[in-house]
Design a protein around this nucleic acid. Structure first.
Length: 550
RNA sequence: UGGGGCGUCGUCUAAUGGUAGGACACCUGGUUUUGGUCCAGGCAGUUGGGGUUCGAGUCCCUACGCCCCAGCCA
């Protein structure tokens, strides 16, 4: 097998497989902390871990890294599972919690103490900070560094039993206070936290720090390749140090660059501000870069997964153009979505030469990309509605749509010519009087006459009302994270609500979660706020538009 | 100024030391009952300077630039 077009992680795994380092096994894990909703950046890690396991015929665990009871909640463990499932990944029975390993971690800590590699420190967090030194200056040793093993054992036991207050003591690794890597300057292993944990309640009042916990979790689960983001690169020496001092199985940590997207933020803290200060309606607001937000917006798991394949994996910092995500989205939606007629800003059209009471059913294709999607019947009658912007009395050059005296095709129906423009007192156009050519049924002329424009339309009598929400990017800045205050770069036009939209009747019974394309407009999905009485549709993404750009 | 990483089209990402390729974006043109899709074409890149070599994005030296690290967060 060649190394052509593999990413650097696959190449490392290939090497391991050649040398037999992990017995040719691949076992990865996705280890979220349940302290928030997953976003599109997490999706990269999810796809990477599950896909790579799959490619090498291995497994991928879902593991909650729940070592900080202050930040974590049950609600998040639920939503995280939903999101991973929605993306289409299956952890089978391998769902784990760091909190299930607390006893083992504690026992390992005792082993560390026994080997003289850890000590209980009475320094306050301020003192520890003080003693740590700086990037340029070495730290100084804790006065508690040389306690006897027995004293350490005794104190640690009492920390666990709840004898001490929060912050009064820590267990620390005895490494090197002048190490150039700050992570190695006697890092904290356990801190005292009298707090209720979402799974272990008050059984513990000491909680392991990330560096201690994470390697042990990986080791216990037999993970082979522990994939994480770049900022953990200088934690790897500590990851290795702990497992080596314990003499236990040691996975290989590999760091990759996380995903960044233009015009969006990925920081959990900032996303939380958007929600809490009501800049959006919730974690699943269709403008949010959360997985639940993308889902509600109408994105498909396939589009997101294809995008991640496309983006690749490397070590250099990157900012993906969100246009690439949208491109991936459109290409998935183009193939699968049903075509339907919807008029967002209705303009009344009366076909003067069409019999008053006549109605007919027009055959319309459901999806030109997929013949098997079949056809449906669209009602046509004397009074119709078209898009306001599809008529101009005084059109510019190359305007292919309806004009006074001009002829266009009403898609699937007839050729229509506009004869009169009716205006109100303000001079605004309120109605068009047109005639149809009855020999063009189906939208094709019998005399070879061509028409430049094709419009979508709905029959007034048969159409159904709907609210349509037009979403645009949440931020107008390409890099909101780089702004002095990201809130200031929120796009004030990120949501436009249209209340007088008219849909073809078939949409009444559309199931939720079925993506539709409103012809000539964009892709839409029925929102969860829809009811039988009032329909609400979200615009997932507009169709590519090379006309309005000009 | 310590340590750890990273520098390839506008943006991502490829290239056993051997024609710098692909995607998105952008621009042309063609097809089209969606100004969509599709098709064809175009624009555009190895951070700088030395060195090794028949040959360097790749190896060596050097300069420069960017990111991360001083939580009892992960």
């Amino acid at each position: 097998m060649s190394n052509m077009n593999k990413n650097f992680i696959q190449k490392i795994i290939d090497e391991h497989n050649e040398t037999g380092k992990f017995d040719s096994k691949v076992h990865t894990r996705f280890p979220p902390e349940p302290n928030g909703y997953l976003h599109i950046g997490h999706a990269k890690a999810i796809c990477l871990n599950f896909n790579i396991a799959d490619e090498y015929d291995g497994k991928c665990n879902l593991r909650f890294d729940d070592t900080n009871p202050i930040a974590e909640e049950e609600e998040y463990v639920r939503s995280i599972q939903d999101d991973v499932k929605w993306l289409g990944f299956d952890w089978e029975d391998r769902i784990y919690f760091a909190s299930d390993y607390f006893q083992q971690m504690y026992d390992y800590a005792i082993q560390l103490i026994n080997n003289g590699n850890a000590y209980v420190c009475d320094l306050s967090s301020e003192d520890i900070k003080e003693n740590r030194g700086t990037l340029l200056k070495p730290g100084t040793q804790s006065p508690y560094r040389d306690r006897s093993i027995d004293e350490n054992l005794n104190l640690f036991e009492r920390m666990k039993s709840g004898e001490f207050e929060n912050g009064s003591k820590t267990l620390r690794a005895k490494i090197d206070m002048s190490h150039p890597n700050m992570n190695m300057r006697d890092p904290v292993i356990y801190r005292i936290l009298h707090a209720n944990h979402h799974r272990t309640a008050d059984r513990w009042c000491i909680y392991p720090m990330y560096d201690w916990a994470h390697g042990l979790e990986d080791s216990i689960e037999g993970i082979t390749h522990s994939l994480c983001s770049l900022e953990f690169e200088d934690h790897r020496p500590l990851y290795d140090w702990y497992l080596d001092k314990l003499g236990v199985y040691r996975p290989q940590q590999i760091e990759f660059a996380r995903l960044n997207l233009s015009y969006t933020i990925m920081s959990k803290r900032k996303l939380k501000i958007l929600v809490e200060d009501n800049h959006v309606t919730g974690w699943d607001d269709p403008r949010m870069p959360t997985i639940s937000g993308f889902k509600r917006r109408g994105y498909t798991p396939r589009a997101i997964r294809n995008f991640m394949e496309d983006v690749g994996v490397a070590k250099r910092d990157n900012v993906m153009d969100i246009a690439k995500l949208e491109s991936s989205l459109r290409s998935d939606l183009n193939v699968r979505s049903l075509r339907r007629m919807a008029v967002l800003n209705p303009l009344k059209v009366v076909i003067t030469n069409y019999p008053d009471e006549k109605e007919e059913l027009i055959v319309a294709k459901n999806n030109p990309e997929d013949e098997s999607a079949g056809t449906r019947k669209l009602p046509f009658s004397k009074v119709l509605y078209i898009e306001k912007e599809d008529f101009m009395e005084d059109p510019p050059k190359k305007f292919f749509r309806l004009t006074l005296g001009g002829e266009v095709r009403f898609k699937f129906a007839y050729f229509i010519t506009c004869n009169d423009v009716i205006k109100d007192g303000n001079g605004d156009i309120i109605e068009l009087h047109c005639t149809y050519d009855k020999d063009t049924l189906g939208g094709r002329s019998s005399d070879g006459r061509k028409v430049k424009g094709t419009l979508h339309w709905v029959s007034a009598k048969h159409s159904i009302p709907a609210e349509i929400r037009l979403y645009d990017r949440l931020f107008s800045s390409m890099n909101p994270d780089g702004e002095e205050n990201f809130i200031n770069s929120i796009n004030s036009n990120s949501l436009k609500v249209l209340n007088n939209c008219l849909l073809e009747p078939d949409l009444k019974s559309l199931e939720s979660d079925i993506p539709v394309q409103f012809e000539r407009i964009g892709y839409f999905i029925k929102d969860k706020e829809s009811s039988d009485k009032s329909l609400v549709f979200n615009r997932t993404v507009a169709l590519r538009d090379t006309w309005s750009k000009k």
